[in-house]
């Protein structure tokens, strides 16, 4: 019975001392927190990757726009050529029609 009483006494629920939880959290937090300098290579790598992606995107977009402009310019010159030829043909037909003798 004596052993049983001692065991019960030893295992009884007991409140922790004041501030125990805060101290544990503070200690654990301090132990597991990664120092800022360990993040730096990752941050730098991300920044470099982002810069490369933005630069490459800019170059690709610029080339695409330049090609689009050249295609449009080619179309414009072709359209003006076609218009000019059509107008010249009309002029020539008018001239030929006017030159025909009226019976």
């Amino acid at each position: 019975m004596n052993v049983e009483n001692e065991l019960r006494k030893a295992l009884r629920r007991q409140s922790p001392p004041a501030g125990f939880a805060e101290r544990v959290i503070a200690k654990a937090g301090g132990q597991f927190r990664t120092p800022w300098w360990k993040f730096r290579p990752l941050v730098l790598a991300n920044a470099v990757a982002l810069t490369v992606v933005l630069f490459a995107g800019g170059v690709i977009y610029q080339r695409h726009e330049e090609q689009r402009a050249l295609d449009a310019r080619r179309q414009l010159v072709t359209a003006l050529n076609v218009t000019r030829v059509s107008l010249q043909k009309a002029q020539e037909r008018i001239r030929r029609a006017a030159a025909k003798p009226i019976l």
Binding site: R68, A69, L70, A72, R73, Q75, L76, V77, T78, V82
Partner: peptide
């Protein structure tokens, strides 16, 4: 065949590259 449609901004873009 020749099929050309140049309107709006595309026409201005083409002119700027003349």
């Amino acid at each position: 065949r020749t099929n050309i449609t140049l309107d709006g901004a595309l026409l201005k873009l083409a002119a700027s590259f003349l």
